[in-house]
Design a protein around this nucleic acid. Structure first.
Lengths: 191, 191
DNA sequence: CCAAAACGGAACATTCGTGTTCCACTACTG
DNA sequence: CAGTAGTGGAACACGAATGTTCCGTTTTGG
């Protein structure tokens, strides 16, 4: 049961297929996942004995991606608001379909470091606080809310692509512009 | 089989319970829905013979709520941006748990006027275009994107309440502030 | 008060997803 | 070429959800 190249490749194919299928319908059957992966159901069970194993693997997989994105965004460089926007861009590009899963379905975000303990989440919260201090982020928005809104806009951008047939680039543009303006501390009347 | 008061009341109780239960887990069993409604599973099947009937009823129910909210917001009064914010507030207050359903699960928004044909949706799109003309909404944001983002922020606000234990009022405040700033045509550098 | 309406529980058949086992086939590798 | 890892299909048992029927009980309303 060594980690040969074939095994890791098959495993990844199943994982990718699972993300695609389950992001469309989180209660899809394992047969559908296997078919999407171009793999027999038997093989799928060889890699992930139970459904919960597959779900948890997706969760871990996602956490890794998030960590990478957070790292790439270099959150401690430059004004905080710009860093948040960079982070959003990285998320968009690295997460794809996974987004729908973690955002809409609680089953993928349970049983792990989620949601309070994740290092990346804490980094984002700290970043927003820095933005409050350096004046680049509206002090009327709490860090926790910014986090929520960031994910929501990301999901919206992805849905924009899937449902409205907009290009990824166009959707990301609208998303980042919205985020930028949302965070910007303006002199508009306070709601 | 006349429309006695008892029947409508029972039907509504089931519908409400279904929204609560299914918004937590869209693949919950009908037994759970019946229990939440304080009703026997037999009775539930009397009103909604198949699961799909219940799902569709929720869809229709939601459309009605949306129509009411759109009406109350008086979209043709005042600056367009303020009208959008009013609409968002009405949505938040009238939709509650239903939000999670229509937003995350496609099964509730299929088989109806959804999504392209709904009168309320068209009204929102037209409203944004009016905002482009009267200069109250950033011309860099397309009407379709504003629609997506509006729903996303609404969902974020609701999740904020459910997951972070924030008060409805506080969550709505953050949501509306974000929306307002997002739409505002500022003089910030263009992304 | 009495009949009709509405309800709840038990039981049943059916379907579907799941998890498992067994066996034959293919591909790589020494 | 032989052996082994990997695969896929068929078949099976099991449980859960669904949809239906039947019947006794409660509630409603004229």
């Amino acid at each position: 049961m060594v980690e040969t190249g074939v095994r890791t490749r098959t495993r990844q194919a199943i994982l990718d297929a699972a993300v695609v299928v389950l992001s469309r319908d989180s209660s899809a059957s394992l047969s559908e996942v296997a078919r999407e992966a171009g793999v027999g159901r038997t093989t799928l069970h060889r890699y992930f004995p139970e459904r919960s194993d597959l779900v948890q693997a997706i969760g871990t997989f996602t956490l890794e991606r998030i960590a990478v994105a957070t790292d790439r965004a270099k959150l401690d460089v430059g004004p905080a608001r710009e860093a948040v926007v960079r982070l959003c861009r990285e998320y968009f590009e690295l997460l794809g379909d996974v987004l729908s899963l973690v955002f809409t379905d609680p089953q993928f975000s349970s049983g792990l470091d989620w949601h309070e303990e994740s290092e990346s989440d804490l980094a984002l919260l700290a970043l927003v606080r820095r933005g409050h201090q350096d004046g680049s982020i509206d002090r009327g928005l709490t860090p926790e809310w910014v986090q929520q809104a960031l994910w929501a806009l990301l999901y919206a951008a992805w849905a924009f692509v899937r449902e409205c047939g907009v290009s990824r680039h166009e959707a990301l543009g609208q998303c980042l512009r919205s985020l930028e303006r949302m965070l910007h501390p303006g002199d508009q009347a306070t709601g």
